[in-house]
Design a protein around this nucleic acid. Structure first.
Lengths: 192, 192
DNA sequence: ATCCAATTGTACACACATGTACAATTAATG
DNA sequence: CATTAATTGTACATGTGTGTACAATTGGAT
């Protein structure tokens, strides 16, 4: 009923994700991006609407690979699931030959340059992560693995801080064992 | 012997630090910066050389306020000094009404956009921080406060990860008590 | 075969920033 | 007071990116 798209939208999105991940929000602009994608800006605006809309799509795509999604694995105890997430996170970060860290956390400091809506969406993703961790802590409590007197929110913040630390450090510490040692030591200290 | 400068270099440098801190490296450009400083680009290039040279100056200025400098306070035990640093860090970050986090860590992900020399200088500052922490851990060992079987480098990485986590989280968690609770809980878990 | 509508190509009118060059200004020094 | 050299003002040539508008293309549906 109409002309078919001549480029692979998924591949283009993937390329965009890489750019935002590697360079950060501010360093990505439409023209060079289109050149890398091998499409014209005309096609770009048609397909993605705007750079910010694309960035939102990129964040969603990125989060679909988020190790924290495994927190809800009901085959494991909550504590096991948390440890597993961190294990996977360390492996993932160490495996990345580009040492990009975490797309979401990396871009947090560029919020200033984004339209408010995009900035809020980004910040909400971190809040969600904290909430997910808090829910897991609650679950661990109900399983009797963590003392019910512990402040769940506080412990969740410790875990979020750990995840953030590992994500950022992974840009300079490339060894999986060393990363995992950070996670393992800190988690054990926290009683997880 | 020659014409005197008509603007306050220190004030301009301070303003630049704020800009880099708030917006990040990529979002700062010469023209708007000069307008804010109230000077011409001509004066700017004369006084600072280039944007990158200015950025390096800004990083030095920033680090002159670094709480981690107190690690070497010989009036305290190493463990006390470490706890104190984190306490000061939490206070500092919570006090910042702009919620800027840490200038150095924030800009790490923009390394890609910097000239290699600047990027390396930035990364070196984080390596220095790790080394300083490692030295403190060693000192704590010699004071018998930490078991000598502990891997100093590993523990230092845990502490750097914690500092990074707090710095980044402080952009969204603005409550000093909540920040300190993260630090306190994690430090205790690590036996510091 | 023709029509439809999504897609693509080309071009325009701006906007914004860069770094340098050269002339004009200025204040301390001899 | 004249000299000197850092500083400042103005201008230039250039580079890069933006978003839109409109025409040309294309492939499936009627």
């Amino acid at each position: 009923m109409a002309r078919a798209r001549q480029f692979d939208r998924e591949a283009a999105l993937d390329l965009a994700m890489n750019e935002f991940w590697r360079k950060g929000y501010c360093a990505v602009s439409v023209k060079p991006l289109c050149e890398q994608m091998g499409i014209t800006r005309s096609s770009f605006y048609h397909s993605f609407g705007s750079l910010d809309a694309l960035f939102e799509e990129v964040m969603s795509l990125y989060l679909s690979y988020n190790p924290m999604l495994e927190l809800d694995d009901q085959n494991l105890t909550a504590a096991q699931a948390i440890r597993r997430c961190f294990k996977v996170l360390c492996k993932l970060r160490a495996k990345d030959k580009q040492h990009r860290g975490c797309l979401i956390i990396n871009n947090l400091n560029e919020s200033y340059a984004m339209p408010p809506k995009t900035a809020k969406s980004l910040q909400a993703k971190i809040d969600n992560s904290i909430s997910a961790l808090e829910a897991s802590v609650e679950r661990a409590k109900s399983e009797g693995l963590i003392s019910p007197t512990q402040n769940s929110r506080a412990l969740a913040l410790c875990l979020q801080s750990l995840a953030t630390g590992i994500n950022t450090l992974s840009m300079q510490v490339h060894n999986e064992k060393e990363l995992w040692e950070i996670a393992d030591t800190t988690l054990s200290g926290l009683g997880v």
